[in-house]
Design a protein around this nucleic acid. Structure first.
Length: 575
DNA sequence: ACCATGCTAAACAAAA
DNA sequence: ATTTTGTTTAGCATGG
């Protein structure tokens, strides 16, 4: 069906943002997963600790004071409890994720006569898209020749097509194959084990992502499943989402396993890790594998740091390490297409995902205004010429290496339109600066964040829940220093946060004075003068800036890497 | 239905 | 004369 034509980046982008997990969503989920995996690692560690403790205990018992013994024993207990908790948590999440992931895979995108989704997504597009998103393995050639999308389609189909019967329709088949492995363990460690266990059913609740409908018994659940989650656009979309989630998770898992292995090796710990090598856990990964295989690039997992595998943080420390204490506003994200499936992009995400966006041709979910501002604030002088802004865009985002005319126009348009961008004339031309106050003004949404919401992020279906939407909004638009409880599994912050922080500091230093005020000495700003003031279309009276941006008194040392892209690839447009 | 926001396209002018 | 830069208007989509 459909011509296997190349879809334009815009289409891709739209699809990405509409139908499938945005990189950020994936990121969030991945980070949860990461946290879980770290917990796992911790467990290992604790286990060993325990063993050691036990040894010590024995020794001590043989000859020493019972007092220490007790202490050690209590510690041990505490450890164990913690471990238990962690295990439970972890298993819950992992299992639910896996189940859902698996489940959603099998019903198969494949050849089912699915109606094109709301936005007219066709399988080919999806595959293409998928490729983009997961281009970790094949990024290089992916960008090159888009016509390989067909291959992908077929491989994907072939790998997951076998059972054409929709699982959704026929839930009992759920535990076919790989899935069964996981079923024994249920949510809360050894509890009841229903004869009618179903990955989508647990605790009397439908576990379909975003559903949580209460079902008295298994029968009613089945009924519910067939009625509410029949094969329709919505379900299919959710399946797709889940597929992507799983795939990304696996990529991440592989990486982290490797990491763990290295760590253990380094520490001379004997690995009790059952499988330290990236192994396909289920269909998803086999999709991945077959994909990369069929693309005649047998090279497995390129480990180049620049591979846009997924917009996830390389390695944050894990649950115990709270990454940052502050978040910084990059600005509003694009909230357009159905954000049922859109998970917030916190400001730090932009930094976090830097690598990703640098290499993957995925449209950054930020508004032009936000990006422009970011570009400007990143500059040492907090000012850029138009061309420098362009360069920043192309440097930071692969997406903006295409369709230059379009987005450049948009950039110009934004610069002109928004009051927050102030053009100041220089001896050698004009530069653009950001009026932070104005910028903040133009963000109407309230801060409605609540850390407790983050909890919901942990649930595997968080990206579908309304709560999450709320969180989304708040995070996205305000990115206040609230959501930094990395312990909750949102270590999404931090990476380059410091950089941004510095930027912001610079920007915020003079928020209440005029725009070119407090530059320390060496600034050419003094020679500058704003040319004219814009009439911002919207004019909110209230100028209160409730967003307290954290300021740490540090100034960005240097950002001189911004020349290099100059004339890179600005003209490799497809057409 | 309305409004605000954001994106794209495009016309146009001034400057380089 | 052409390109770049900047302004402005318009149409469309989305979401509240």
């Amino acid at each position: 069906m459909m011509t296997p034509q190349v879809i334009t980046p815009q289409q891709m982008q739209q699809i990405l943002q509409q139908q499938v997990l945005s990189p950020q969503q994936l990121q969030v989920l991945l980070q949860q997963q990461q946290a879980l995996m770290l917990q796992q690692q911790l467990q290992e560690f604790y286990k060993k600790q325990q063993e050691q403790l036990q040894l010590q205990l024995l020794q001590q018992h043989a000859g020493k004071q019972p007092k220490e013994q007790q202490q050690v024993a209590t510690q041990q207990l505490a450890f164990q409890q913690q471990l238990l908790q962690m295990q439970q948590l972890q298993q819950q999440h992992v299992l639910s994720l896996q189940r859902q992931g698996l489940l959603t895979i099998q019903p198969g995108q494949p050849a089912l006569p699915l109606q094109p989704l709301a936005q007219g997504m066709i399988p080919t597009e999806l595959q293409q898209l998928w490729k983009e998103v997961t281009s970790g393995h094949t990024a290089e050639e992916t960008t090159g020749n888009n016509h390989s999308s067909l291959d992908l389609t077929t491989t994907c189909v072939s790998s997951s097509a076998p059972s054409k019967t929709s699982l959704i329709m026929n839930p009992h088949a759920s535990t076919n194959g790989q899935l069964s492995v996981h079923t024994p363990k249920r949510e809360s460690l050894s509890h009841e084990e229903h004869p009618h266990s179903h990955p989508l059913y647990g605790h009397g609740v439908c576990k379909w992502p975003g559903c949580e409908a209460v079902c008295e018994d298994f029968q009613s659940f089945l009924k519910h499943l067939n009625s509410e989650h029949a094969l329709d656009d919505r379900s299919t979309a959710q399946c797709r989402v889940q597929m992507q989630v799983v795939q990304q998770l696996e990529l991440q898992l592989a990486k982290d396993k490797e990491r763990l292995q290295a760590m253990m090796t380094h520490l001379h710990v004997k690995s009790t890790e059952p499988k330290a090598t990236p192994q396909p856990l289920n269909l998803v990964s086999s999709v991945t594998l077959s994909k990369s295989a069929s693309e005649a690039s047998p090279q497995s997992l390129p480990h180049t740091p620049t591979t846009p595998t997924a917009p996830i943080t390389p390695v944050t420390q894990g649950p115990s390490v709270i990454t940052t204490t502050s978040m910084h506003t990059v600005g509003p994200i694009r909230r357009r297409y159905s954000d049922k499936y859109n998970v917030p992009i916190s400001s730090a995400d932009i930094a976090q995902n830097q690598e990703f966006y640098k290499n993957a041709e995925v449209r950054p979910p930020f508004t032009y205004a936000s990006l422009i501002r970011q570009a400007i604030l990143e500059s040492p002088e907090k000012q850029l010429t138009l061309n420098e802004i362009y360069n920043w865009f192309t440097r930071m985002f692969a997406y903006f290496r295409r369709n230059a005319a379009t987005w450049k126009n948009a950039v110009r348009h934004n610069l002109s339109l928004h009051k927050c961008f102030v053009r100041v004339e220089n001896v050698k031309g004009a530069v653009w600066t950001v009026d932070e106050v104005e910028f903040q003004k133009r963000r109407p949404q309230k801060i409605s964040g609540n850390p407790s919401l983050i909890k919901n992020m942990q649930s595997s279906h968080a990206y579908c829940t309304p709560l999450n939407a709320a969180l989304q909004a708040s995070m996205a638009d305000n990115s206040i220093p609230l959501y930094t409880t990395a312990s909750m599994g949102n270590p999404a912050l931090g990476n380059l946060a410091s950089a941004i922080r510095e930027e912001l500091n610079g920007a915020m230093e003079h928020t209440n004075s005029n725009e070119s005020g407090s530059s320390p000495g060496r600034s050419p700003l003094q020679a500058l003068h704003p040319v004219h003031v814009k009439e911002e279309p919207l004019d909110p009276e209230e100028a209160e800036g409730p967003l307290s941006l954290v300021t740490t008194a540090n100034h960005s040392p240097d950002f001189d890497h911004d020349r290099d892209y100059e004339d890179e690839p600005v003209n490799e447009d497809m057409e």
